[in-house]
Design a protein around this nucleic acid. Sequence first.
DNA 1: TATGAATGAGACTTCATTCAT
DNA 2: CATGAATGAAGTCTCATTCAT
Lengths: 176, 176, 176, 176
Amino acid sequence: MTDKKEKILNAALELFADEGFKATSTSKVANKAGVSEGLIFRHFTNKEGLLNAIVDEGEKRVKLLYADIVLETEPKEVIKKTIETFNTVNKEPDEVHFWKLQYKIKWEMEVYGEHKVEPLQKALTKAFEALGYNQPEAEAQLLLITIDGLATRFYLQQKGFKIESQLELLKKKYKV
Amino acid sequence: MTDKKEKILNAALELFADEGFKATSTSKVANKAGVSEGLIFRHFTNKEGLLNAIVDEGEKRVKLLYADIVLETEPKEVIKKTIETFNTVNKEPDEVHFWKLQYKIKWEMEVYGEHKVEPLQKALTKAFEALGYNQPEAEAQLLLITIDGLATRFYLQQKGFKIESQLELLKKKYKV
Amino acid sequence: MTDKKEKILNAALELFADEGFKATSTSKVANKAGVSEGLIFRHFTNKEGLLNAIVDEGEKRVKLLYADIVLETEPKEVIKKTIETFNTVNKEPDEVHFWKLQYKIKWEMEVYGEHKVEPLQKALTKAFEALGYNQPEAEAQLLLITIDGLATRFYLQQKGFKIESQLELLKKKYKV
Amino acid sequence: MTDKKEKILNAALELFADEGFKATSTSKVANKAGVSEGLIFRHFTNKEGLLNAIVDEGEKRVKLLYADIVLETEPKEVIKKTIETFNTVNKEPDEVHFWKLQYKIKWEMEVYGEHKVEPLQKALTKAFEALGYNQPEAEAQLLLITIDGLATRFYLQQKGFKIESQLELLKKKYKV
DNA sequence: TATGAATGAGACTTCATTCAT
DNA sequence: CATGAATGAAGTCTCATTCAT
């Protein structure tokens, strides 16, 4: 990957995340990347190709993120790690743009990457089952949705919203 | 409100909700409304004015929706109604576009209409307090966020996502 | 048809004929027509739509041109008129661009409007048959191709090429 | 001539012939030739240089083609060979692209390489003179134009167009 | 009130060409 | 000789907005 290609990717990530895909012009991306507009198309074919490159790159990160949790055998640990992972990772300053983009895309493109979460959801279901919950599958889904909701808030209005205390409350509720 | 003005409003609501604000051209709106493009500007000044008209109209509906809950005095009833309101209202076929738009706007415009929920959040806080929860404020926020997350899933229309059973599970958890 | 729409059509006809379809930019057309570039697309959707509008308009003229010949009953007159029509009509100053474009398009788009000439070819075939030619169909085709070739020369290099004398020679050969 | 230079030439010939000069991008040529785009410019300076190289190369072939005819002394043979040459040569599968390109260029660049045909035209004029035709020069021109017209049809590939029978008919007309 | 022709800015994209390696 | 990254100008097209009627 050349230096300029990377610069395009980074500029696009930040702009797409902040202003949305449609609202970000390729010229704005080129400008921010310090690159000619044409280069975007030489490297990514399309504006959409640029988006895909970012999303694909993200897919990898998500898998990496879940890998650790999925391998966990202790039920309570699975739940705890699920909650904590989101607390720590999503806030890495470098990654905020990336995650914000993931959320933005859900709405702008109406693509909900369900398949990405599936392994995690299965691990959680097993954990709730082991812990004797009545509807383990529904519990797993509800927990993920709740965390998703928390992340949504976090990315939309960082000012004043303390995600940590909410995650602590969650942990108490699940006794993990 | 004239007949044509209303038609514009409805067409815009549907298109903004389905394709997003930026991605919807005024000509598409005019087309769908069966109206000349110029008329949009006579009635709403500009494209953003059209969006505002829709959002303002929605503000009223939201207040109406909460009015009932906020007046409730029985703590458990407050929680129960909060959960149920979302179950019933958001699914009225005619209103789906409206609510979907609300969610889309949150991301596209990064405007989170927190003030709209404030009265509801206060009522919930009081309810949790009355029921002896340790962190009533955080509890209220968490519940609203969870419901928000459920609604998000619902509007993104994941096939097979049964919001009712999730809401039932929620009610069990809160024993309401 | 509004004034400006007509101006676009005329400018495009002239430019397409002189420089070719691909080599003529829509901005050049707009410029020559004294019109904003966007108007081209409002009226014709596409650059290709603009071309089609011109070609369609031409289709009508071609039919009109043949109408007279096709109705002729005297065999020799059919042949004579076929030759003469091309001599007179194609040279009407206003029409030169139009006919040149027709020839250019044959090559640039590789569309040979065979169907347009069919009625004329049939009339010619009948005429050659009546006059006792051995291969009337082939004769008809050959005559049309020859005239086509003459027109080609005429439009490509007006300077010095005397189409009239060639057409006179043709008439002598067919004794009409 | 290096291997790669030749490959560029061949790719360009085919593409220019099929899609036209303007419509063929240098990148398409490079792609088809299996060569880097830059190499085109090292070898041919610019896109037009590439076209010229092809045309020049063709000039030689044309001269070669006519050489035989021009040297012929028997008048009827001159005419016969003129007609037959086009029948045989233009259809050599490998050469179709080359000849098609010649015709395309006539229209796209409005360059009619009259000088190329001059020696042939002179030879034909002399032949018609010897055979006692009234307007030998005009006859020579008309014959060439007719053959040109036939070739045009042939290269535009009208399905069902049998150039051979047309050329046979021509030969009968000239009694050769 | 309502239309629809018209505009100008800017969007995405293509492309011939240059240049460091 | 050969590559491929990079550029800048230009091309097609979209769109919010204006305005005469």
